[in-house]
Amino acid sequence: MSAFMETFSRLRDEKRYDEIIAAVPYARLMGVEFGEDEQGELLFRLPFHERNVGNVTLPALHGGLIGGFLENAALLHLMCNRESLETPKIVDFSLDYLRSGRAQTLYAQCEITKQGKRVAHVLIEAWQEDRSKPVAVARAHFLLTTGN
């Protein structure tokens, strides 16, 4: 186990989520925040930042950024909800864009649909003001072991 994963495990157990984000450079660049909702489930937030805009005339959040935010959410959700401290490796990521992301906070929540011995499947949903009107839905597969 790497020194980083030891640190991660401590930050996770102490719920110091801001410090986890601070350790992941691209998550910090996007401006990701996360914590627990009233039910104790992880809720990911991306407050609006000008640098995250794609189409400037709408304006809309960049589609690639939405993908990055959701992929990062899936990885952190998985890492926070499993015992093993091996870093999962993303295998594939599939994203459906349902509405354009407005200049507002984007939220995301994940669900581990399956966690097998070697592979995990995670569903991710993103929304803004109204959860019943998702901006995007995605799913990802992660490899859980570094074996062959």
């Binding site: 691209y26 960049h62 589609g63 690639g64 950024l65 993908g67 990055g68 935010f69 992929e71 990062n72």
Partner: peptide
């Protein structure tokens, strides 16, 4: 980060 790959492929 994979998000950078997603952004460059989308763009």
């Amino acid at each position: 980060h994979g998000g950078v790959i997603t952004s460059i492929i989308d763009t």
